[in-house]
Design a protein around this nucleic acid. Structure first.
Length: 352
DNA sequence: GCTTAGGCTTTG
């Protein structure tokens, strides 16, 4: 009867028989955010392991992005129902089949066991609770979770590849294959940050910020396949940008008909084309520990909250810009500097 | 309509 709850049996990863359809639990040791395949679906590519120490590759094809497993970092735990065991070359891999479902969990010992899923009605019982806790304990002993503190704008080393957790403030397409994401994480980068000149008309979100804010904002250039993902992002979103590269030195920036000059010795951030090394962008939910941490440990999100920096309309907008302009002119009078940003503010004042 | 990808020796 449909009223009898399903009892799921989970296969160990060293006990997968090619051709069968199984349910599995595993710790994520590698993953790519869903990307467009050359077929009709998005593909999530990941590798998992369990107490058997086998490492099994999985490919999940689903047309709807929201149905893909919500994997945020290596060490996350994933449960998959109805995957087919395949053989590719000489190794066993898993692929989703009809009725597939995936649920993920934070992999840290002691964290509450909260299933992450887009599905409203998931099966989750005491056995699942136990499975997650056992995998967490095992994974902790195997040191499968990243232990080093995450890299921030204040600790990033030039020429490093790293995962950046941040808030998106504004974005602008620079050309057909490159989009600028203006982000901050609440920390101050010790290196001067690359400035990018963009057409305010093309910018989503504020097109200028106070000088104090500008000092905290990193410009991330995302290329090719990431442009499409960037289009879906909204200013205010919390993001993790995977395998972003910090580049110190001169940077050629596309846009404004190629007029942007090289800026020497500024730190630029690039998300290169492709999905190698897990390159990609993910929106983090408000409930994620990372977002909670960003909000609580860095007062910048409260002091200069996004709502306050977002330009409204009419009178308030004009007042905000006027104050911004006055503050800018005070700050810059001694430098005898009247930059593009100031000109843009004046232009906007006239338009309002 | 029943494939798609099958990490990875990055770099505008």
């Amino acid at each position: 009867s449909a009223l009898i709850p399903a009892k799921y049996v989970y296969s160990r990863l060293d006990d997968l028989e090619v051709g069968t359809r199984v349910n599995v639990y595993g710790v994520v040791v590698f993953f790519k955010q869903p990307f467009k395949s050359s077929g009709t679906d998005y593909c999530s590519s990941l590798k998992i392991t369990d107490q058997s120490n086998q490492r099994i590759g999985c490919n999940i094809f689903l047309s709807k992005l929201e149905e893909h497993p919500k994997i945020f970092q290596v060490g996350d735990i994933i449960r998959m129902h109805r995957v087919k065991v395949c053989r590719f070359n000489d190794s066993v891999s898993l692929i989703n089949t009809f009725g597939f479902s995936a649920v993920t969990f934070d992999g840290s010992k002691g964290e509450p066991v909260e299933p992450r899923t887009s599905c409203q009605t998931i099966h989750f019982d005491e056995e699942d609770q136990r499975m997650v806790e056992q995998l967490r304990a095992w994974s902790f002993n195997q040191a499968l979770l990243p232990t080093a503190p995450s890299v921030t704008l204040s600790t990033v080393q030039p020429s490093a590849y790293f995962d950046l957790s941040c808030q998106l403030l504004a974005k602008a397409p620079l050309d057909s294959s490159c989009t600028l994401l203006r982000v901050w994480d609440g920390t101050k980068c010790p290196h001067p940050l690359l400035k990018v000149l963009v057409d305010p008309e093309m910018t989503e979100g504020p097109s200028s910020f106070s000088p104090e804010q500008e000092n905290l904002i990193a410009n991330v250039l995302v290329y090719d396949n990431h442009v499409e993902v960037a289009e879906q992002l909204k200013p205010g979103d919390f993001l993790r940008i995977y395998n972003v590269r910090a580049v110190l030195g001169s940077s050629k920036v596309p846009g404004l008909a190629g007029t942007q000059t090289l800026e020497q010795d500024h730190l630029a951030f690039h998300l290169h084309r492709g999905t190698a090394y897990g390159r990609g962008i993910r929106v983090l939910p408000q409930t994620s520990p990372t977002v909670q941490e960003l909000k609580s440990s860095h007062t910048v999100f409260n002091k200069h909250s996004f709502a306050q920096t977002t330009l409204g309309s009419g009178y308030c907008n004009g007042t905000f810009l006027l104050l911004l302009l006055l503050r800018k002119s005070q700050l810059e009078y001694c430098h005898n500097c009247w930059d593009y940003e100031t000109s843009a503010i004046i232009l906007l004042l006239f338009l309002l």
